[in-house]
Amino acid sequence: MGDYIIWENLGNGTKLVMNQLHYAGLLFMILAYTVKIYQLLKKPAAAEGTPARGDHKKAIQYAFMTLAMPWEIESQKRHWYRYLEFALFHLAMAVGIGFAFIVPIIPEIMKNPIISIFAQIFFIFGFVIGISRLLRRIVIAEMRTISTPDDMFCLVLLFLWMLSGIFAAPLKSEFWLFSYYCMATFFLFYVPFSKISHYVYFPFIRYYVGKHFGHRGTFPKKNVNSQQLY
């Protein structure tokens, strides 16, 4: 077991990336997303002017909740491990983001072995799933057909980021910490241009999908007995 990094002794490069560059990247990402959302909202939206058959509010809630209801989506119901993989991968990303922003402020938190092992476990999940997703894109013809260089590049970046996270989490190696923040910073600048932006659009698309299918009475999916109709 090595010693913890002494924060005051961090190299200038690490400090620069962890603080100035990292936050500059965050600022850039916020600005880029603001522009993206502005561009999206500038486009006219198709509106339903007809009387509704269903309940918009319930349907929009349902549309958002399906994220946590794998039984509502056929493919996830059938391939439950893919859902598990999706959930763990995204939790790993959330841990990675949390780590990136919390550590510069309260590095002591990672000295708690429970927290640091918890983070490492998720980084391992993220790394393994990232590699398996990449392999799937390369090996399976259906996935290869729909994969772009951006899809591949994002996965490579993510699993490398997770790999660096595994070693950076205990805060015992400046090299890995530096690597982790370099990649995190790169992400902040690159993500607005890549498919990873999907999470920004997620609330918008689920809102519109929920509203549309709610208007028609399709969402929430029916689980009623037609004997009770009317």
């Binding site: 909202l41 486009k43 493919s75 059938r78 999907h198 659009y201 519109y208």
Partner: peptide, 22 residues
Amino acid sequence: RTNRQHSLSFATCVHCGTCNDS
């Protein structure tokens, strides 16, 4: 003719392959 809903459906797809089974 690309409207907001079209844009969202174009931009959001992450090529996850969930739709294959459908």
